[in-house]
């Protein structure tokens, strides 16, 4: 009897916690988004969609994710391949490459601000090289393109590490013999990468993509640090409605939009990158 109930006892605290602080709040936020004084309404969604910033924020967020995530995946795959082939200094290189893992998005935004601000290092260098005569306001409201680029760079710099860690851990699970077998059968390094590594790494790639895409939709502090309100994104608008406009119903509607696209993309990745159980290592 004691043995039967023990696992449930051990799971109970975590389960209760997640019910109270994970499942319940999400029901609450959904209710907030679709109700006004206890009655169902779509008014908040209309307010949200009707605001001039909504389409901009939506597309900015989407474009950012689209620009950032694929580059991160490719870069992390490249880095992981390099590092698994190293013999000496592997640990040091891995440590350096995973440093950004510990850096918050706000700090990352501030770091790249040091580079892109008007008196920052980029301008110092360009003026020093004589490439430009006057410092450029890269992050000024009229330079939407360079703001976008700065945010993309900061995000790639900060969050490639998590993809790298997932992929390196995944590669560690692939037995070396598969590569050796492929080599014996005459596969070139590129063929080995595309035919052995990538397919066997699919579960890790799936995890990394889901995690990164969701985090990309949550992009917030990097943008605030680099662009202030010059570059609206969904999460920033959520914050703005909650705080500055004091309308938590519309903020909740924003939250549901972020939630919806997150779930949609998760399902897409789960579906397209599915690995049948029998085909896993």
């Amino acid at each position: 009897m004691e043995k039967r109930s023990l696992p449930y006892l051990l799971l109970l605290p975590a389960t209760l916690f997640l019910c109270v602080f994970f499942i319940y709040p999400f029901l609450l936020v959904a209710w907030q988004a679709v109700s006004q004084d206890g009655a169902l309404t779509l008014e908040h969604f209309r307010t949200m969609a009707g605001h001039w910033k909504f389409p901009t924020a939506f597309w900015n967020t989407m474009l950012l994710a689209l620009a950032v995530v694929p580059v991160q995946l490719a870069l992390a795959l490249f880095m992981a391949t390099l590092v698994t082939r190293m013999e000496k200094g592997r640990d040091l290189v891995l440590y350096i490459w995973t440093i950004p893992l510990g850096i918050s998005d706000l700090a990352a935004g501030i770091i790249w601000l040091a580079i892109f601000e008007q008196t920052g290092f980029l301008n110092s260098m360009l003026v020093g090289l004589g490439a430009v005569e006057q410092p450029v306001a890269w992050l000024g409201y009229q330079n939407k393109g360079t703001i976008f680029l700065a945010v993309v760079l900061a995000e790639i710099w900060r969050a490639t590490a998590i993809v790298l860690v997932i992929l390196v851990a995944g590669m560690g699970l692939i037995p070396k013999e598969y590569h050796e077998a492929a080599e014996v059968f005459g596969a070139s390094p590129w063929k080995r990468f595309t035919r052995i590594t990538v397919p066997l790494l699919r579960p890790s790639i799936q995890t990394a993509l889901i995690l990164r895409t969701i985090l990309a939709f949550e992009v917030f502090a990097v943008v605030i640090a680099l662009a202030g309100t010059n570059f609206p994104v969904l999460m920033g608008e959520t914050y703005h409605w909650q705080f500055n406009l004091q309308d938590r119903h519309v903020a909740a509607a924003y939250a549901l939009v972020i939630l919806a696209i997150s779930i949609a993309f998760t399902l897409v990745f789960l579906r397209t990158l599915r690995v049948p159980r029998e085909a896993q290592i």
């Binding site: 997640l18 999400f26 936020v29 995690l211 949550e218 917030f220 909650q242 909740a252």
Partner: peptide, 27 residues
């Protein structure tokens, strides 16, 4: 129920968790 619990834990990944702060602020 082991799988159900695992799924609940994994599910948290598909949600933008910082948004929890909104309803919890009221609570």
């Amino acid at each position: 129920g082991k799988d159900a619990f695992r799924i609940m834990v994994l599910m948290t990944r598909a949600f933008p968790l910082p948004l929890l702060a909104l309803p919890l602020a009221v609570m």
